[in-house]
């Protein structure tokens, strides 16, 4: 009988509903976790796989990255034979970010470390053609952009 009475009292007084309300009220008072993204830039860790970045100056046109890419979105054009003997920099280098899945498989085999991910993550464009990056657009201006966004300081702070 006391059990039944106890159950009746519990049914009428809603203790568990009240504790649920207490949980939501607790978070009502706490600071919120929303990130104000376009206003506040996120701090990304060092290993973030963002847009690909190629140092054309150090690349030796070995095409290892091209072979490793599962999506076949890299195309390396080595320079003509005569030039290659002295200057190994590629004649043209395409990466289609339209297909890239940011898996990082192209970064692993590169013998010179010329290709790597940057922390640029805002890759939306109005035009698909803008996603095809070439020799001119792949390397340096990204770095400058990072400087501007103050992201490079994060690199220093967060590097392992």
């Amino acid at each position: 009988m006391p059990g039944a009475l106890n159950r009746l009292v519990r049914m009428m007084t809603f203790p568990e509903l009240a504790s649920g309300l207490a949980v939501t009220f607790k978070w009502f008072r706490k600071p919120k976790v929303t990130e104000f993204y376009p206003d506040a830039r996120p701090v990304l860790p060092y290993r973030t796989k963002g847009r690909l970045h190629v140092e054309i100056e150090t690349c030796i046109s070995c095409r290892m990255c091209e072979k490793a890419c599962p999506e076949d979105c890299i195309k390396v054009y080595p320079p003509p034979k005569e030039v290659f003997k002295t200057d190994k920099r590629p004649a043209q280098f395409y990466i289609s970010l339209e297909h890239c899945i940011h898996c990082g498989m192209c970064v692993d085999p590169c013998p010179t470390g010329s290709i790597h991910h940057s922390m640029e993550f805002e890759l939306a464009t109005y035009n698909k053609d803008e996603l095809l990056f070439n020799k001119e657009t792949l390397p340096y201006d990204l770095l400058i952009k990072h400087f501007r966004q103050g992201l490079l300081e994060n690199v220093e702070q967060k590097s392992p």
């Binding site: 860790p45 290993r47 392992p160």
Partner: peptide, 22 residues
């Protein structure tokens, strides 16, 4: 922080793991 990606991490290569914990 560990793998560079949040959702589709491409976590393990065949044989082991790529990088140690940061």
């Amino acid at each position: 922080a560990m793998l560079g990606q949040r959702l589709l991490q491409n976590a393990y290569p065949i044989g082991g793991i790529r990088l140690d914990f940061p």
